[in-house]
Simulated scan of single mutants.
Amino acid sequence: MQTQFPGLRIGDDVQRALDAGAPVLALESTILSHGLPSPRNLAVALESEAQVRAAGVVPATIGVVDGVAVVGLAEAEIERLCTAGDVIKVSVRDLPIAQVQRRDGGTTVAATAFLAHATGIRVMSTGGLGGVHRGASETFDESADLGTLARTPITLVSAGVKSILDIGATLERLETLNIPVVGYRTNRYPGFYIADSGFPIDYRIESPADAAALAAARDALGLESAVLIANPVDAAKQLDPEFHDRVLAEALDAADAAGITGHDTTPFLLEFVQRATGGQSLEVNLEVYRGNVALGAEIARAVAG
């Protein structure tokens, strides 16, 4: 599938690859604009693209520049999203607003998946998914990623959802939304900073070829949902699980004491965890992302056949 619409531009390298049926891997940009500090964000962006190219795959970093949704950002555009001071976070609902107001934006998992699918890209990598927030039974706070992934047939590699979220409730919502979740060489759902969140996964795959076959079966059935590949961080590189649990409990208590609620909760908790771990959580974040980019590139090659 490839859909052209006003306010969308596809990079030349990405367009050539799509026309030739060559493998392409979509990469989100909120990790760059909002998830990592400068100048580390730009270095990670360029390293990730180089990592994908070295695997024989064309990278398509996706973002919004001056209101235009760009699938395959140029290096100067990536630098702009990494360094400009007024970059907004763009989910699917924000795309028309960003277009009309000519804003720069980092695209979330939801917006990146939407734009990737619209242009014919079939595989995407990210760090962690959005999900159901703790206390959502009262606040109804749930990431737009879930609803978008329920109607966007892409293969998405992540390390689960961040442990600051309600992982059990997120898995229940994924089941309700008919979004298949499979572990990559594991039957345990990862918790982003840790390899095992404590929740099981019913199904697993062992290879990129298995992921490609699963996507093909989904397509043959005419199903609309994404296929989620849960790829845990290497256990040797995870945060120590006991240390992780203690810091997370402290972060949640601090948020409660400060009266932090709604969309302010996630950045507060992530910043608390980063400070409390002396930056270790940031390094794990990068290990997670590199691993997901590597696996996503392998799956993109398998999907392209």
Rank of each mutant, 00 (worst) to 15 (best):
G262W: 07
A212C: 15
A300W: 00
E206I: 01
A251H: 08
F192T: 14
P180F: 11
Y184G: 03
A294Y: 00
H263V: 13
R218A: 14
E224P: 02
E271G: 12
L252Y: 01
A213V: 13
F272P: 03
E242K: 10
V284Y: 04
L282C: 09
A213Q: 07
G279V: 13
A254M: 01
H244E: 14
L295D: 13
A255H: 07
P208A: 12
P241F: 02
V181F: 04
Q274T: 07
T266K: 03
R290T: 06
S281Q: 12
I299A: 08
T261A: 05
K237V: 01
A257E: 14
V284H: 05
D210Y: 06
L269M: 08
L270C: 01
T186Y: 04
A276V: 02
N285D: 14
F192N: 03
A255R: 09
V284C: 06
L221H: 10
A209N: 13
D196R: 00
G183K: 03
H244W: 03
E206P: 00
E224R: 13
I229M: 03
H263I: 10
Y193P: 07
I229A: 00
A254G: 00
L295Q: 05
A220G: 15
I205F: 10
D202N: 07
P267S: 05
D253N: 11
V181M: 07
D256S: 14
R185C: 13
R301C: 14
A249K: 00
P241C: 02
L214N: 08
A294M: 06
V181G: 08
L248I: 12
R275H: 04
R188F: 02
Y193T: 10
E242C: 06
L248G: 01
D245R: 11
L286P: 03
A213N: 12
A215G: 08
V303I: 04
V284T: 03
Y189P: 02
L295T: 07
N231K: 05
L282K: 04
F272H: 12
Y289C: 00
D234W: 05
A302F: 05
A217S: 13
D245I: 06
V288F: 03
G296F: 05
A213D: 12
